[in-house]
Nucleic acid binder design. Structure first.
Length: 478
RNA sequence: CGGGACAUGGCUCAGCUUGGUAGAGCGCUUCGCUUGGGACGAAGAGGUCGCAGGUUCAAAUCCUGCUGUCCCGACCA
């Protein structure tokens, strides 16, 4: 299916792979459920990594690396953890031509092995992060949004008190909010997961939930309060101020290459991908209009000059001076790849001292832009595109968030083409989750950290008003 | 894991019903002509038809199994 058709028919599944393949972000691998991240897609990940890595270090964490293989017995030490992850673990049983005496799982996450080390190191390291790959054997996979192997960052911290660890959980979910809002241009809701959606082994899980352009919600990152569950399982202890040996309070938090999927499904149009400038591999593409068999030196020199001036400012710029490819094809290619700005310069422009600029986000084309002041204009435009994308996504979310008082009202929200979030009050009765799942194939995405409903808003399932009720966001999700 | 669809040059796909020497468009190579939004003409290269079996004188085509992708469920980040 073409991207154009996929957008019109709101065929999100096919749209995701169409965009990812066409924009050369990824390709299918010979291994089921795995993907190859191509250079253009990996460059986006590197930009995300660079930005987030600084945030993680600025909040007092150090990077380390733990091994890919985890003894299967480690996983079994925490009852809920093994129950949650065992079904999706790949297990190494043979190596060196022999059956292993101890089986190893390929890490689905690293809480267990990190705790094993924490119990030895607790006096020296308490706040670690690692950038790694993990593997979770999935039944149904989708490029970037759910692949069997994916890249992520996982932070693991130890604290003396529960108050401290709870504070860390909230602090890091706000770091993710900063990343999504200010760099990926995706508005998110922060909230706590219900018990059924909690991380296996956590006391509580907070997530950031983004709304995709097809109206489905996407969990884009999580931060867990692990309590003392893993500390007890691995006997990770420290000596407190009263000289008593006590278990530490822990957190873990992560975001993955799913974020690239969030960008794809959060920013696109009928042409293809639209990248926020702050994470775009190329923020500007310069296309000189070249004439075959003629002297293009002047045009090329000017194009190279622009390239240097923009690069010197720290911008990421691509100069496409391939002669054998017509500009029309180049225009199309960079539009599909979501490059925020296109700068076109030809001989005619040169004579008039101007250029042509094309904005990918609103697909506007301005000719006869004076070269004087151009560089400043480009810098300003990139900022406008960045904030414009966020505003557009926020508007979209506002339009697609409905307040509901009862189950019947959900019909109009979740059964319509637009989907989106439903905001409601809930008394905690798990019956609601069953109804949502069976009747609407939807779920409680989170209990938002910043509630918006008045306290007298009735519970969606009981119809009663109570101070015990909690506000929830309901949506269909990926 | 259940139901459905699909798998044919680099890409998009036709051909399969009714078995008989593999096709088109795009892309690629060369030449000519063009050149500010996917130009045109001519010549040419390129495919063990997803994999493995089976039926047949003969299989892209019929049958069986497997693998992968997509869709709908279940499950999950």
């Amino acid at each position: 299916m073409s991207i154009d058709n996929a957008v019109k028919e709101n065929n999100a599944e096919s749209l995701l792979s169409d965009i990812a393949i066409t924009a050369e972000l990824a390709d299918y691998s010979p291994v089921k459920g795995c993907m190859v991240i191509r250079p253009y897609g990996y460059a986006i990940w590197e930009n995300i990594q660079r930005i987030l890595d600084k945030m993680i270090k600025d909040t007092g964490h150090e990077n380390a690396y733990f091994p890919l293989l985890v003894p299967e017995s480690f996983l079994q030490k925490e009852a809920e953890h093994v129950e949650g992850f065992a079904p999706e673990c790949a297990v190494v049983t043979h190596a060196g031509g022999k059956e292993l005496s101890e089986r190893y799982v390929i890490r689905p996450t690293s809480e267990t092995i990190i705790n094993h080390m924490f119990s030895k190191w607790i006096n020296s390291y308490r706040k670690l992060n690692q950038w790694a790959n993990v593997m979770r054997w999935e039944m149904r996979t989708r490029l970037f949004l759910r692949t069997s192997e994916f890249l992520w960052q996982e932070g693991h911290t130890c604290h003396a008190t529960h108050e401290e660890s709870k504070e860390e959980v909230i602090k890091m979910i706000h770091v993710y909010e900063d990343l999504l809002h200010n760099y990926l241009a995706l508005p998110i809701h922060i909230g706590e997961k219900t018990e059924s959606e909690r991380f296996a082994g956590a006391v509580s899980t907070f997530s950031i939930e983004a709304l995709m352009r097809d109206g489905k919600a996407l969990q884009a990152g999580t931060s867990h309060d692990l309590g003392q569950n893993f500390a007890k399982a691995f006997d990770t202890t420290f000596t407190d101020s009263e000289n008593k040996l006590v278990h530490v309070w822990q957190t873990s938090w992560g975001v993955s290459t799913r974020l690239i999927g969030a960008v794809i499904m959060g920013h696109h149009d009928e042409v293809g991908l639209i990248l926020p400038p702050k994470i775009a591999p190329y923020q500007v593409v310069i296309i000189p209009i070249l004439k075959k068999n003629l002297d293009n030196t002047k045009v090329l020199n000017q194009a190279k000059l622009f390239h240097k001036e923009l690069t010197d400012l720290g911008l990421r710029v691509k100069l496409d001076d391939r002669e054998q490819i017509s500009q029309g094809i180049k225009f199309n290619e960079y539009e599909q790849k979501g490059v925020p700005l296109r700068l076109v310069i030809g001989e005619r422009d040169l004579e008039n001292g101007c250029v042509e600029l094309h904005r990918r986000d609103i697909r506007s084309k301005e000719k006869d832009i004076q070269i004087a002041g151009l560089i400043e204009r480009i810098v300003r435009l990139l900022d406008e595109i960045q904030s414009g994308l966020f505003t557009r996504a926020l508007e979209y979310r506002k339009e697609n968030t409905k307040i509901v008082k009862n189950i019947a009202e959900l019909d109009s929200v979740l059964d319509s083409k637009s989907l989106g979030f439903a905001r409601a009050m809930w008394n905690g009765d798990v019956e609601l989750e069953r109804i949502l799942k069976e009747k609407f194939s939807a779920s409680i995405r989170c209990m938002p950290l910043r509630p918006e409903l008045p306290s007298d808003h009735p519970c969606i399932i009981s119809g009663t008003v109570s101070p015990q009720n909690r506000e929830i966001l309901i949506a269909k999700a990926y």
